[in-house]
Simulated assay, not measured.
Amino acid sequence: MQTFTRDTCLRFARRGAAAAVLAGALGACATGPAPESTATAPALNQTQSSGPSRWELIRWQQPDGTLRDIPHGDNGQPIIFEFNSGIDAAQGTVSGTSGCNRFTGSYGKTDTGIRFDRVAGTRMACPPPRMELESALLKAMQTPFVTVGTQPSAGSTGRQIIWKTAGEDLLQFVEREGVGQRGARIDAAGSVEKTVYIDSQRVECTGVGRMTCYRWRESPDAPWQLWYGPIEGLDFEPGILYKLRVREYKVPNPPADASSIRWQLLSVESRTRAN
């Protein structure tokens, strides 16, 4: 059997190889030799600064090579893990969305990967596919994950990591925009702080294509406006009205399909459930 190194595993994933090839590569990762201890393996932050980071689950491969569907929330929310001290920290707190509900807990490094402790979440009911995936994910988080592949960021592609669960599933995460995203550079001198009010639901809008936008305003009695970009660091919960303190900054040389103005969350001033 051909042996795939950690870098080889994620090179297949980053290049968008055909499903059969990628399944074979990740299968070799699952059945190949045990991964190195993280004490000697290259850390993800060798070329990045430390700090909070935000990761999205983009692929779930089962032991037989089949893929689980990863449904998003009602407003397109992905499954997100946000690590307050960064994914390479010895320990810290983790929060995010697990498919249906929001969760919080703690995490810590192990010799071969990562463990999660004291994970608790909200108890909202969702359609069966999301509930089933969430139950499987939370169950998997009860035992440590083994790191079988990592890939530093390259160009517009975020850093990636593949963890193997105790049940031999392979979970692939990619770093996304969010509070403290490593590699994000903000010109603080050219930024401004402002207070914004965010509506309880995102709405359909049209940018380069069909998408969903936040509705925002500068005061409680001002008219609603559309915000087409992300609010970096906001773990948005539908049905909640937010008053936020954000930093607004200009993005140098933004992509053609992205805004040149972005918001980074500084603090949540208030959150109120909509009537």
Rank of each mutant, 00 (worst) to 15 (best):
T3M: 02
T8A: 13
T8H: 09
C9T: 10
A13H: 11
R14Y: 02
G16R: 06
V21I: 08
L26F: 11
G27W: 05
G27L: 09
P33S: 11
A34G: 11
P35Y: 03
T38M: 09
A43H: 09
T47G: 12
S49G: 14
S49P: 08
G51L: 02
R54S: 15
Q61L: 05
Q61F: 00
D64E: 11
P71E: 03
P78T: 05
I79D: 04
N84M: 02
A89M: 04
Q91C: 07
S95G: 08
S98M: 04
S98A: 15
N101M: 04
F103D: 04
S106G: 15
G108K: 08
K109P: 11
K109G: 05
T110P: 13
G113Y: 02
I114R: 13
R118P: 04
A120L: 05
M124F: 02
P127A: 12
P127F: 07
R130H: 00
M131N: 11
E132G: 06
A136G: 12
K139A: 13
P152L: 07
G155A: 06
G155M: 00
T157Y: 06
R159M: 13
K164G: 06
K164F: 03
K164C: 04
G167N: 15
L170Y: 02
Q172H: 13
Q172A: 09
V179G: 12
R182P: 07
G183Q: 07
A188P: 09
A188M: 09
V192I: 14
T195E: 14
T195R: 15
S200M: 07
Q201I: 07
T206M: 14
C213V: 10
W216F: 09
W216A: 14
S219D: 15
D221M: 01
A222I: 02
L226G: 12
Y228Q: 10
I231Q: 07
G233C: 08
G233D: 10
I240L: 14
L241P: 05
Y242K: 06
L244D: 08
L244M: 13
E248C: 00
E248G: 10
E248Y: 00
K250N: 12
P255G: 08
A258F: 10
Q264Y: 00
L265W: 05
V268Y: 11
V268H: 06
S270A: 15
R271M: 15
R273V: 07
A274E: 14
